[in-house]
């Protein structure tokens, strides 16, 4: 990025210069057995909120996950890890989807700086997690700009997300784009920001998102190249705030789903660290619980 852009450059350099090749191979299954997976990425928007319960599968199974339908799910506002009376029941509505719907217009799970707890009961086992809702960035605009042809970029019209990181370090964001009603989900389209740059450690703060992040809302082709916009294209962008643990989780997801295939520059295979724990063993299970503040904007090319 600032971190993988050099790596990308290196890789294209390598491809240019050498004779490497990739051959498909078939590996024997090493899958041990299904485990519970929790997908609880909620927001402060007053709209139906969904928690998905599924199971792990063989990495090469090439299918949708098996839903988990026999659980009870609840989210509560908490104070110092103790539940308050403000609890939200997530009802199973089929296919492992547990949904809470606002009872009144404007009702939401809570506000920025609130603490939330997640509780799941499945058979004898109980699982729990605590998180904080952090603030999100302010979107100024989505702009469309003509770009000249340059290395790795075709000439054409591209979108840029002008958004500002609030003053004070430690803000992390997930940026998602829905392009003509399709949520952009290619591995290279997973976009994260930390205080307006890609990651903590640069101590950058309170500025507009840097250029590569602004640009990242564009649709990408399979090689990670940006696809220029066409007339009538519609872009909807959402910036969701992340807890520090959620940022680390997604950062590892980002590394892992983009890893492999570059050979020399691959990172070690690592498991993503979940923040939901089985109460009895205190062992983390798979999946994540984050309640984020959301900022949204959309625009159509004329």
């Amino acid at each position: 990025m600032i971190k993988s852009i050099p790596r990308l450059l290196l890789f294209s350099f390598l491809t240019l210069a050498l004779y490497n090749c990739e051959d498909p191979v078939t590996l024997e299954s090493r899958f041990e057995g299904p485990e519970l997976v929790v997908e609880a990425w909620l927001t402060n928007i007053s709209e139906p909120q969904t928690i998905l319960l599924t199971e792990t599968q063989d990495y090469y199974a090439n299918r949708l996950p098996t839903p988990v339908t026999d659980a009870q799910v609840i989210v509560c506002q908490t104070v110092n890890r103790q539940p308050t009376a403000n609890c939200f029941i997530f009802d199973h509505q089929g296919e492992g989807q547990y949904v809470w719907e606002p009872a009144t217009a404007g009702q939401a799970l809570g506000e920025v700086d609130m603490e939330f707890g997640l509780g799941i009961q499945r058979g004898e086992k109980q699982y729990a997690s605590i998180t904080m809702m952090k603030r999100t960035a302010t979107i100024d605009s989505i702009s469309f700009q003509l770009e000249e042809e340059s290395f790795g970029l075709d000439a054409g019209l591209y979108a840029q997300l002008y958004a500002r990181d609030p003053v004070g370090t430690g803000d992390a964001y997930l940026i998602r784009t829905t392009f003509n009603d399709t949520l952009l989900l290619n591995p290279s389209e997973l976009n994260l920001a930390y205080d307006a740059t890609f990651s903590p450690g640069t101590e950058t703060d309170g500025i507009a998102f840097i250029a590569p992040i602004r640009f990242s809302i564009n649709k990408q082709n399979e090689d990670g190249g940006f696809v220029p916009l066409e007339s009538e294209d519609h872009l909807a962008v959402e910036i969701i705030s992340l807890s520090d643990e959620a940022y680390l989780f997604l950062r590892i997801v980002q590394e892992q789903i983009n890893n492999g295939g570059s050979g020399l520059f691959d990172l070690p295979v690592a498991n993503t660290p979940g923040n939901i724990f089985e109460l009895e063993t205190q062992e983390p299970i798979l999946g994540f619980f984050n309640v984020g503040a959301s900022a949204r904007a959309e625009r159509t090319v004329e």
Partner: peptide
């Protein structure tokens, strides 16, 4: 990796 799971569509 031996297994895989879905999260946020990934």
């Amino acid at each position: 990796a031996s297994a895989g799971y879905y999260q946020l569509g990934y």
